[in-house]
Design a protein around this nucleic acid. Structure first.
Length: 419
DNA sequence: GTAGGGTTAG
């Protein structure tokens, strides 16, 4: 049933493509990956994926394409399509290699389908795939991505006992630590860390970073600071991510403390990245210093050679809206649409409501058009309810339509870009 | 990016 659905989806896409665009010819994998990053419609994603998966040239890359496709389908809750897609790979001779099978387990995790991941792990004997810590780690990753953090300690107890070919390594332990951190127990995570030291398993910078972030989030700032000192004393090679976690904490304090820490970052030879600048921008936003926040945003590309990401847009647009700066919010929103990184539902709602309140009906409809194109079906349904409440397409609002040729231009540009 | 775990939600 499910493979047939995929086929139908593909046909559907194929027939529209035949009418509206010139050639649906087979494409290279690198092209497919570029396209997949932009496309959010699950049927389009599947069509792109199918147009390369037949081409056997580069199997390594197509795994990545699969993960992207699965993520698109997962957002639309198309679980039977995901199952069909992933299971179809079991026919490949590569299924006997543990890394390939582990990719499939991990993909199930990306779709929060932990039971399927577990089933695949258990089927390894029948499939003739040898087991090592590689597939065990894939299974742990699948439970973390499925938000089943309580399953991780359980698997940790059971699996290595059941299969003597599996010995947890530093990455397994890293995920165990993450599971405790995600369930709000950084102290328990620190116990695991001490346990690793006893067992002579390396505590990597990633494990440290996980704990550090969790300590800050749970308000255990003093413990976090002493862990940081411990890392520095041990000569741990610090990187951007661990500094970014500290910046997260500094952002709660003040923009000044963020800047100070960013200078420290530079002085140790690290270059602040998009995430770092996002924290600086956030620090200005929460203080209501929107002019300064926008300067950070504008400097991202111009001065710092960084690309704004989804969090950049989400945070900035949200705060522009709650400060009543809908016009500026709209400008930034347009940019986010061009970059296929529109903000979340709540932020889009704020923006649209604000535009309606200011009688900018055509601009509000422009935002709505983009939202409906990019959100998964469930949210589109929700969004249409909002449109009804706002009277976005009522007669009165049509009459009030104004100044929108510019809006159309930008949204049309975005539309072409998406195909 | 090539095996895999870490950072942003007002």
């Amino acid at each position: 049933m499910a493979p047939f659905r995929i086929y139908l989806s593909f046909l559907r896409r194929f027939s529209t493509a035949a009418v509206t665009t010139a050639s649906p010819a087979p494409i290279t994998i690198s092209k497919a990956k570029l396209k997949l990053r932009k496309v959010h419609d699950p049927d389009k994603a599947l069509a792109i994926y199918n147009s390369v998966s037949k081409n056997p040239s580069s199997p390594l890359s197509s795994r990545y394409a699969m993960e992207l496709t699965v993520q698109r389908l997962a957002k639309s809750e198309r679980f039977s399509d995901i199952e069909a897609l992933i299971e179809s790979h079991k026919n490949s001779p590569k299924i006997k290699t543990e890394t390939f099978l582990s990719t499939l387990i991990r993909s199930y995790g990306r779709a929060s389908m932990f039971d399927h991941a577990m089933k695949m792990f258990e089927e390894m004997d029948q499939l003739g795939t040898p087991r090592s810590v590689v597939s065990f780690n894939a299974l742990l990753a699948a439970s973390l991505h499925s938000d089943l953090f309580e399953r991780v300690p359980q698997l940790f107890d059971e699996i290595p006992h059941r299969y003597n070919s599996i010995t947890p390594d530093k990455i397994s332990y890293g995920m165990l630590i993450k599971s405790y951190c995600d369930s709000g127990s950084p102290e328990k995570a620190m116990e695991i860390m001490r346990d690793m030291e006893v067992k002579d398993v390396e505590v990597t910078i990633i494990a440290f970073t996980t704990i550090l972030g969790s300590l800050y989030k749970n308000g255990l700032v003093d413990v976090a600071e002493s862990l940081w000192n411990e890392m520095v004393c041990k000569g741990c090679e610090l990187d951007n991510t661990v500094y970014n976690v500290r910046l997260m904490n500094a952002a709660k304090e003040s923009p000044e403390s963020v800047k100070e820490l960013m200078e420290e970052m530079s002085s140790v030879g690290l270059k602040p990245d998009t995430v770092s600048y996002n924290y600086l921008m956030t620090a200005y936003c929460v203080k209501g210093m929107m002019g300064e926040a926008k300067k950070v945003y504008e400097g991202l590309e111009k001065e710092h050679d960084c690309v704004p990401n989804a969090a950049t847009f989400r945070t900035l647009i949200f705060h522009l809206c709650i400060n009543g700066l809908y016009d500026q919010g709209l400008t930034v929103f347009k940019k986010s649409a061009v970059m296929h990184k529109i903000p979340d539902f709540k932020t889009c709602k704020h923006l649209t409501e604000g535009l309606v309140k200011n009688n900018r009906m055509e601009d509000a409809r422009g935002v709505a058009r983009t939202v409906k194109k990019k959100f998964p079906p469930r949210l589109v349904t929700e969004w249409k309810k909002l449109e009804g409440k706002l009277g976005l397409y009522s007669k009165a609002s049509n009459a009030a339509a104004s100044s929108s040729s510019q809006t159309r231009e930008v949204f049309d540009q975005e539309r072409e870009d998406a195909t």
